[in-house]
Design a protein around this nucleic acid. Structure first.
Lengths: 190, 190
DNA sequence: GTCTATACGGTGATAGAC
DNA sequence: GTCTATCACCGTATAGAC
């Protein structure tokens, strides 16, 4: 992958987190990336859908990897998850609450308009659930229980991101972190 | 409020749930509403931001009212919440997973671009939290505990809506409903 | 209140020179 | 690989007749 191509993807990711899919124009991407104007359709001959799809995959890959490594840095899975979400809250706070990977916003926007982009989003979500499930299975849950908990964790996380963004405050995300730790601890102990 | 004005608001709500804020054009609103072309800027002289803001407020009002009445139809607050979320899941299912009030998508999209619309979204979220908090307080929680649970419930709900939309399945939302009932029951009993 | 016409800029996309 | 020019279309918004 050449440098220019990657710059375009990175710039697209940044713009998507802030503005979403329809609001992000190709001209804007060119400007933000600093790429030569003629390069867009050279590297992405299938146009906007291709660029957005690849950006979602790219950002998703990074997020999944960050989760995977983050969740094994601490022995206790629940404590690890707690710290990971709080770390996410720190990041979002630093970036003035416009951040959190393009995933949330793009998946909602593309659900009805682009099957291609939707599919890219779904793939990332599935990976995230898989990572969570694998890590939560270490708590002594059955596979089905771990899968269920993973999905619920993901839902809370997404909701927390939204509320933090809307309220311009990291508090909702931190509430989610605390609550998930406590409630799952009880679920495991029972 | 004249009929035409209301039709415009209603049409805007429908389009917003499907497509979001930047993807919904004024021409599209005119067409969808069946309103006379000349009426848009007559009823909404401040343009697009005004239309969207009012649509968010309108849809939010309906949602809040539906929650309020839904949550008191059953004696047990937790059971009432459970049934309400499942009812939402039914609705979303019927509308091919493009529905769920314009709130989620617009709040995320407008967070960085329109303070006016953002504020309208925040106001609705605050009302929803208030309704939840009031109802959950009946479980014997302190006011602070009820507020915290209300926020967490809202986060799970939002996340569940997103996942259901992305997966074209009501399952995530139903998981959220079940889990909230169970986990809060334990929290109350302890 | 509503209609038509239009201004003006932006959009995604393509063609062809270099 | 990149640039420039250009396409047809869309967007929001406004003006003025009726």
């Amino acid at each position: 992958m050449t440098n220019v191509r990657e710059e375009i993807i990175l710039a697209t990711c940044r713009l998507l987190e802030k503005q979403g899919y329809p609001a992000t124009g190709l001209n804007e991407i060119v400007k933000e990336s600093g790429a030569p104007k003629g390069s867009l359709y050279y590297y992405f001959p299938e146009g906007k859908e291709q660029i957005i799809s690849e950006a979602v995959r790219y950002a998703g890959q990074i997020l999944v990897e960050r989760m995977r490594t983050g969740l094994i840095r601490v022995d206790d899975p629940l404590q690890a998850l707690y710290e990971f979400i709080n770390h996410q809250a720190d990041q979002v706070e630093k970036q003035h609450f416009t951040a959190g990977s393009p995933l949330t916003i793009v998946s909602v926007e593309a659900a009805g308009s682009s099957e291609r982009i939707s599919q890219a989003c779904r793939a990332v979500y599935d990976q995230i659930e898989a990572v969570l499930q694998e890590r939560l299975a270490c708590c002594g849950l059955t596979e089905a229980e771990a899968a269920e908990q993973a999905r619920l964790t993901l839902a809370s996380l997404e909701g927390g991101m939204i509320l933090s963004r809307v309220h311009h405050s990291a508090a909702p995300l931190r509430s989610v972190a605390r609550h998930l730790k406590d409630s799952m601890k009880k679920a495991v102990e029972k």
